[in-house]
Structure formats: structure tokens, C-alpha cells
């Protein structure tokens, strides 16, 4: 029996051939914003659906000088974020950080950091279902054709149905967007509050879907428009409260149940944003 130890793995786990394949897919995705590039995902030591796409994209991007931040639900200390960060510490030995401004590569699930991103950063999204048309049309062969021919009528039919039934577009997260006027893409299940941050972003945004074997991307400064109707425009929204820790009225909030009497409080979902603000307030007060 010959079982390799963790030390025997290549830098960032994947072998160089595989990383080269991934980088080709990433470059192609960057060249055609919003287009889903097929790639051959590898089995990773974490399950499909738990971020294998993001992990592979991060692994292909990382160099030893990088400083990695991993968030899940906006927080650095959620279990899956901890697990993925530990994975890269172990197999790549890169420095890690919880501070958004210090990170060069940020892997995320479900959120875009509140702190504006910069030109030298890469934001890697974990994507469960990369096909925005999937729940309207289950067949891959058909949805690829719809993208190729720009047949997006059905997407708007879905939005129409929402308004007809609910009076507004009843999508709260994974709100579909149009990338650079050509491809309808999913921003992954981020709350629609985060959608405006997708557009004209200075950072590179990469979206990896491991199980579905697709990578799509937004190069810096790409124009990203959330789909809507002229008379029912897209609106980013969040809980109408201020964070009880740092007092921010601008950040996306988690609702925390505090007792079984219906008591609840609202706190920033972005833990780094929140602690940076409250630290500044404390040092300002002192």
C-alpha cells in the first residue's frame, strides 16, 4: 500500500497539468464574459456542492506570495470557510487573512464583501448551478442553444409571472444578470443586495461550478445589469435595520434569533466589515 501524506501533494493540491487546464478555461471565461466554459473538474477531497468549483479555481489562481481570505455567508468563521481555508493552508502553505483589503484572492460562498474590492484582487465564487435558465429548461443541450441564439424570452417570462402573481419579482438571491450585453448569467446565490457590486468592479470575478463542470467570469470593469422591466426596475434590498454591533445602515444584515419569545437582533453578515468598523469606533472613542 502506498498512501501519500499531505506533504506529498503538489502546491495547492492539484497537479500542474490540471491547473493549466483550469487556467485555460479561466482565460476563455474572462474573454467571453458570462459564457459558461466547460472544464473537466477533478474529484476534490471535499464533496461536490461544498465549493469544489471555487476550490479548483482558487487552486489554479494561487501563487505562493498570495494572501487568501475565505468567507461563507459573509463570515470568515463559518464552518465551511474554516475548512476551505485550512485546506489551502495545508496544501499550499499560503498566508491567510480575514481582512478584505489585505487579501489577494478571496473565495466566497453567497456574498460579496462590503468593502469595495481593488484592481489587484481576485474574487472566486462557489457556484452550485451555473445555468441561469436551468429551472426554466432542465436540458443542457437546450439551454446551450438558447444562450447561443440569445433566446432569453423565457427568462423574462419567469420575471413576468412573478410580478403577475406577487406584484414584484419574487427573486431574493441568485438574481440573473446580463453580462456586457450578451450572456445571461447567474451571479451565484448572492442576495440581490449584492448585485450592484458585480458591475464595474475593479477586481477579477471568477465563478467555479465543480459538479456542473463550468467556469464563468467577469473581467474587471465589466458592465453587469440585473434583469428587470422598465416599470418594475431591479432594487437591491436588505433588512430595514442598522447593525447592532457597528451601527452600519449600509451593510447586509443577518437576523439572529435571541430568545424563544420572538426576540431578534440584526448584525452585519460581513464579519470583517463589522469588526473593522467597531474597532475604529472604539479607538476613535478612546
Amino acid at each position: 500500500m502506498n498512501v501519500a501524506s499531505a506533504d506529498n501533494y503538489n502546491f495547492a493540491y492539484l497537479d500542474e497539468q490540471t491547473k493549466r487546464m483550469l487556467r485555460r478555461a479561466i482565460l476563455k471565461a474572462l474573454a467571453v464574459p458570462g459564457y459558461q466554459v466547460p472544464f473537466a473538474p477533478r474529484e476534490m477531497p471535499m464533496p461536490y456542492g461544498w465549493g469544489t468549483g471555487g476550490v479548483q479555481v482558487s487552486a489554479a489562481c494561487l501563487v505562493p506570495e498570495d494572501r487568501l481570505k475565505v468567507i461563507d455567508q459573509g463570515a470568515d468563521d463559518t464552518t465551511n470557510a474554516v475548512s476551505i481555508r485550512k485546506f489551502f493552508q495545508r496544501v499550499a502553505g499560503v498566508a491567510t487573512t480575514e481582512t478584505t483589503t489585505e487579501a489577494t484572492v478571496i473565495q466566497t460562498r453567497h456574498r460579496i464583501p462590503e468593502t469595495p474590492l481593488k484592481e489587484d484582487q481576485i474574487l472566486v465564487y462557489q457556484v452550485p448551478i451555473p445555468e441561469p435558465l436551468r429551472f426554466l429548461e432542465p436540458r443542457e443541450t437546450e439551454t446551450r442553444r438558447m444562450h447561443a441564439l440569445e433566446e432569453y424570452g423565457l427568462m423574462h417570462v419567469k420575471l413576468y409571472e412573478d410580478i403577475a402573481r406577487h406584484g414584484e419579482i419574487a427573486t431574493a438571491y441568485a438574481w440573473p444578470v446580463m453580462a456586457e450585453g450578451r450572456y445571461v448569467m447567474t451571479p451565484s446565490p448572492i442576495p440581490k443586495f449584492d448585485n450592484p457590486k458585480l458591475s464595474d468592479c475593479p477586481a477579477i470575478q471568477l465563478f467555479g461550478a465543480g459538479r456542473e463542470a463550468r467556469i464563468h467570469a467577469l473581467p474587471p470593469w465589466t458592465k453587469v445589469v440585473s434583469l428587470d422591466f422598465e416599470d418594475h426596475p431591479f432594487q437591491a434590498s436588505k433588512a430595514d435595520h442598522a447593525c447592532e454591533i457597528c451601527g452600519s445602515c449600509e451593510s447586509y444584515l443577518d437576523e439572529v434569533i435571541t430568545d424563544d419569545q420572538g426576540g431578534r437582533m440584526f448584525v452585519c453578515s460581513d464579519t470583517d466589515f463589522c469588526s473593522t468598523r467597531s474597532n475604529a469606533q472604539q479607538s476613535g472613542a478612546a
Binding site: 432569453y152 424570452g153 417570462v157 418594475h232
Partner: peptide, 10 residues
């Protein structure tokens, strides 16, 4: 069909 050819006013 209207939306497929670009109608965007609900």
C-alpha cells in the same frame, strides 16, 4: 414572443 423580441415594459 414579445419579450423574446425585446419588450421590457411589464
Amino acid at each position: 414572443r414579445l419579450m423574446a423580441v425585446g419588450a421590457r415594459n411589464y
